[in-house]
Nucleic acid binder design. Structure first.
Length: 259
DNA sequence: ATGTCGGCATTGTGCCGA
């Protein structure tokens, strides 16, 4: 089972590019963030015609997450638990079954800028709720994947210019500590389990030809429970997608599971 | 200081979010 996480930055703007990517790279499961669409206006039938089951959790104009799967999806759940007043669409999860069932969570963690401030407080509160859900997933002792745009640069080697991000909500010490707390519960950062060298990124700003200069950051992550990590055979970043015509500012990150 | 996008409200362009 091959799973890819991809912040597409708008389904309307990415309709053709996403279609080409699904047809050529052909993930079994695509976890999409920033669909920037309501459920009613997401082009569900188009992707069903490509062979995918489509589950969305959207809102008007901003945020929004979706799961596209060639494999059966069960027990879909929308919204990160822990705050009934949170109206931002940033979390959807479902069980995907091929040979073995895997709980797959698709998340779009708040950006949090400017920091400090209200938006940063919301980010840190959201990360506390994520930690709580992560604990529940661990307790199932089943394979589970929490993947998406974390808006977290975990360590200096995850940025081309770490000093430029030092005060940013994506890299502040409180952000990194909250991410580390979740990892330290027992999750595996799939990419770092495979590659320890610097220079690998999942996001490049549209400005200043950042992609051509590889002036990027690694903020799209797949966190695995021990039972999922035991199934992982590979993890890679498909950087080439960022260089295509009219791209998202993010690029897909993949795992392959023996599941 | 700014550089670029996407989407919205609105119909020409400015604002917000990233």
């Amino acid at each position: 089972m091959r799973i890819a996480t991809f912040n597409i930055n708008g389904i309307k703007a990415r309709f053709e590019g996403l279609t080409d990517w699904l047809n050529t790279s052909a993930p079994d499961v695509a976890l999409l963030q920033e669909i920037k669409s309501q459920d009613e206006t997401f082009p569900r039938e188009h992707f069903e015609d490509l062979g995918y089951t489509v589950e969305t959790h959207g809102q008007k104009g901003f945020n929004g997450v979706a799961i596209l799967s060639k494999l059966p999806l069960e027990d879909v759940s929308r919204g990160l638990p822990g705050d009934p007043n949170d109206e931002q669409a940033r979390w959807i999860e479902a069980t995907v079954t091929d040979r073995k069932p895997v709980r797959v969570c698709c998340l779009y963690l708040p950006n949090g800028n400017p920091a400090p401030g209200e938006k940063y407080d919301y980010k840190l509160a959201w990360m506390r709720r994520l930690q709580h859900r992560a604990l529940e997933l661990l307790a199932t002792e089943e394979p589970a994947v929490m993947a998406g745009d974390y808006n977290v640069i975990p360590q200096d080697e995850d940025a081309a210019r770490p000093d430029a991000w030092r005060e940013d909500a994506l890299a502040r010490p409180e952000t990194r500590a909250a991410f580390r707390e979740i990892l330290n519960l027992g999750f595996t950062d799939a990419f770092r389990a495979r590659r320890q060298d610097p220079g690998h990124y999942s996001f490049w700003d549209y400005q200043r030809n950042a992609f051509d200069r590889n002036d990027g950051i690694r903020i799209d992550h797949l966190l695995l429970t021990a039972q999922a990590a035991d199934l992982m055979s590979d993890c890679w970043i498909e950087a080439e997608v960022r260089g295509r015509e009219r791209p998202s500012d993010h690029t897909p990150v993949w795992i392959e599971l023996n599941a």
